[in-house]
């Protein structure tokens, strides 16, 4: 999330505060560049996590005290300043827009490269269980890739069952929210690219989320009918605020869910923003970094 997305000029305006993960940051960024909203509100984003890009933000008490609308992503870490909100503040709770269905081998990569300024989450924060397992068993990058090609299909879950599992997961969370997104996600999954990775929605999904937030805000946001989301989205790169990383999708999953929009060469690791890589290149890169990391750790262990 770029720091310049945060509009801090309108200190005397009522605050439109968006709280949550990087998706909330994207929502704040989209609303923050809308002419009407930016004129009327001080649009602010508060991260619910250790945001290494925009930095952890502690909002000034006077900014919180002027909040007229809190768009709050449902999160295990509840909004921390609830007691400081004015009594007239309206609150819309929205779900995280995420879906693991297209990446069932995903897990937090224990052998990712360390963060740098250019890659604050390393190149491959979204690990692949089978790739990392191969590396941990001592396979080379070429051997890992060959094993992946020939064996990964056997590690995929029952995809129909898993789809129901994911639908249930989303609905269980949405039961605690004021808006839902799972209907949209499952209706459009085959026809539109909705996610770059499990928790990075594309512009298509973010636009829908923003539209539903505006509708849910109702009288708390009387200017909502004047908001031009399409215009706001043109202010971002074509891939949208969260398209800086794209995780390839397994060919069997593409086939099973009939993902006609998917191209085989549209993987992007974090830091290769200009040049998408192929499925093989992406996983070879993940394996190569994991091998380096494992060797580095073993060297440290043997030295101590």
């Amino acid at each position: 999330m770029n720091a310049e997305w945060i509009d801090e000029r309108g200190i005397d305006k009522p605050t439109l505060l968006v709280y949550g993960n990087c998706q909330a940051g994207a929502v704040a960024a989209i609303f923050g560049v809308d002419v009407v909203l930016a004129e009327t509100y001080n649009v602010q984003y508060l991260a619910s996590f250790d945001d290494r890009v925009s930095g952890s933000r502690n909002l000034a008490p006077e900014v919180i005290a002027r909040t007229s609308l809190l768009l709050e992503q449902f999160d295990a870490k509840a909004f921390p300043y609830r007691g400081h909100l004015p009594s007239h503040c309206a609150n819309v709770v929205f779900p995280s827009v995420d879906l693991n269905l297209l990446w069932p081998l995903r897990f937090g990569n224990p052998l990712n490269d360390p963060p740098t300024e250019a890659t604050p989450w390393g190149h491959y924060p979204e690990g692949d269980r089978l790739i990392i397992d191969c590396v941990q068993r001592g396979l080379s990058a070429d051997e890992t890739l060959a094993h992946y090609r020939s064996h990964s299909h056997a590690h995929l879950p029952n995809l129909s069952r898993y789809a129901e599992m994911e639908r249930t997961r989303l609905r269980a969370r949405e039961a605690k929210c004021d808006i839902v997104m799972s209907d949209f996600i499952f209706e459009r999954l085959s026809s539109d690219r909705l996610f770059w990775s499990a928790n990075h929605p594309t512009t298509v999904s973010l636009r829908e989320l923003c539209g539903r937030l505006l509708a849910a805000a109702g009288p708390a946001l009387p200017e909502s009918h004047l908001v031009d989301l399409d215009r706001s989205l043109t202010m971002f790169a074509a891939e949208g605020p969260l398209g800086f990383m794209s995780v390839p999708i397994h060919p069997l999953i593409v086939e099973h869910f009939d993902l006609g929009w998917y191209g085989s060469g549209d993987g992007k690791d974090y830091g290769l923003r200009v040049a998408p890589v192929t499925y093989d290149e992406y996983f070879r890169g993940m394996a190569s970094i994991a091998i380096e990391r494992l060797a580095s750790r073993e060297a440290v262990q043997s030295a101590t």
Binding site: D98, N100, P157, A172
Partner: peptide, 30 residues
């Protein structure tokens, strides 16, 4: 680390495969 709502469904799928059962989904998320 990493046991979040996203990965919880993968855990449940792994458990179902390991034990050859289908868990009641709603309760699996509680």
């Amino acid at each position: 680390d990493g046991w979040d709502s996203l990965s919880h469904s993968i855990l449940i799928m792994g458990i179902e495969e390991q034990f050859g059962v289908e868990l009641p989904m709603e309760r699996a998320f509680e």
